[in-house]
Design a binder for these strands. Structure first.
Lengths: 253, 253
DNA sequence: TCAAAAGTGTTATCGATACACCCATGC
DNA sequence: GCATGGGTGTATCGATAACACTTTTGA
């Protein structure tokens, strides 16, 4: 991945540019064809998979850093991002350290230092996302949640924690705007909820409950062309949606 | 607070000992005489108040660091601690920086660097707590939540965020074991919930709901001596309490 | 004996769940 | 016309909220 010289150079530059000891890792959720997906990177020349991540500029807001990192990986702007946990086990950096061990002295190895990583989860529109590998990776791809391979470092734990948080927040935050296309049908939205929660919901009760939140607009004209009865098209009422994000929703699933 | 030499020395030592750029701040909640209280420190020779905090040893777990810091301030062990948010605004360190500005060069001033602080909230038993000032403070005292003075840096924001989290978690976690004495009456426990939530609850409904959680043991003998009808004494069933912490509680307040 | 604190029970209402029927469309 | 997907309505159950009565005890 790095030659000895490159590693020394990178380290020197990195120490100047980034806040030391701090990293950001992002769990990016997307939704496509009834499947919840996560964005993963594959390390160059190795069978290792990991989460999109990066570092924080010396004078950069954390949220801005997370946005910047994700923009590089997805080409998206204004991503829905939630900081959910900090992972700081001293041992968590060890495997990463091992990768470059012995090549140069530790003081010349950016990756040999301890990193506290801030976990963010993101909800993004699958169709507008352009997965883009970073300098260390040869691939950046969507992966079905059920088919996620073993991840490097503690990234498996970070992913699990993100999913847990997402499920929890489903109970008091409106979720969907960032994962659904502009217009969608009620069954499509229901599929999203079912996928996140990992369980089936009753069609009629789901509709009643979602509508009760009063965050949806129903389009006059149903979607044409498909087989069977034409479903109504909905879109999120952004004003009410934002309000619900602030105030929280009542009750849970 | 510091002389020029002391600051330079402290800085040199600190850089070796602590993880740079990372701090921990704790919002310690206690409960006494029907009042929710927060532990605050008063800066030596200044009118500034702030939250108990500290730094992380180079090879220390974050949770261990938080525990260590709080043990120094409270003399308590095994404190209930919840990491709830990371605060990393580059501007947040500025006021702290100002304090020592110009005394020495920035590179010789530990406090002139940017700090990302990890917010923890703690629930502790008021009666067993021995508030102890740290090196920079002349006082460490309990302060009624409604009477908290303006806090330095972004500590006001951290406190607010902690309270928000506590209220949120009241909905799905059993809370009380760490704030109440070993034995307590139902009205006493109710007062705690009312205080955290900032609103009155119905006596009878509260009792039913709490008992439904099935985390309490009722003592055979009521509390004697007080005026009026003797209330029953309850204690937490630790086994069931721990289980509920893992599984979460249903429904909310 | 009375006020105040505490224990216990009942009813009403709202929301969640479960379930049934009607409508539209392509084969 | 019938299978399938989708829209709407209703009954039931449980949890919450609202509310009343009784018991104990010290003054």
């Amino acid at each position: 991945m790095f030659t000895k010289q490159e590693l020394t150079d990178y380290t020197k530059e990195a120490r100047e540019k980034w806040l030391n000891h701090i990293s950001i890792d992002c769990v990016v959720f997307g939704f496509h064809e009834g499947q919840l997906k996560v964005l993963l990177l594959k390390m160059r020349n190795e069978a290792k998979w990991y989460l999109p991540g990066g570092f924080v500029l010396k004078q950069e807001q954390l949220d801005v850093a997370a946005n910047r990192i994700l923009k590089e990986r997805t080409s998206l702007d204004h991503i829905f991002l939630q900081q959910f946990h900090v992972f700081g086990d001293p041992a968590r950096s060890q495997p990463h350290t091992d990768m470059y061990n012995g090549m140069v002295e530790d003081k010349d190895n950016w990756f040999a230092t301890r990193f506290i990583t801030i976990g963010y989860y993101a909800l993004v529109d699958f169709h507008n996302t352009v997965p883009t590998p970073d300098a260390m990776s040869e691939a950046c791809v969507w992966c079905n949640l059920e088919e996620v391979p073993a991840l490097s470092l503690d990234h498996g734990q970070i992913l699990e924690n993100a999913l847990y948080t997402l499920r929890l927040q489903l109970n008091y935050l409106p979720i969907g705007y960032n994962l659904m296309p502009n217009e969608f049908t009620m069954p499509e939205l229901q599929k999203l909820y079912e996928t996140i929660l990992g369980k089936k919901l009753d069609r009629r009760n789901f509709q009643r409950k979602i509508l009760a939140f009063d965050i949806l607009n129903r389009s006059e004209h149903p979607r044409k062309g498909g087989a069977h009865k034409a479903p109504y098209l909905y879109s999120f009422n952004l004003e009410k949606y934002e309000q619900a994000l602030k105030d929280g929703l009542a009750s849970g699933w």
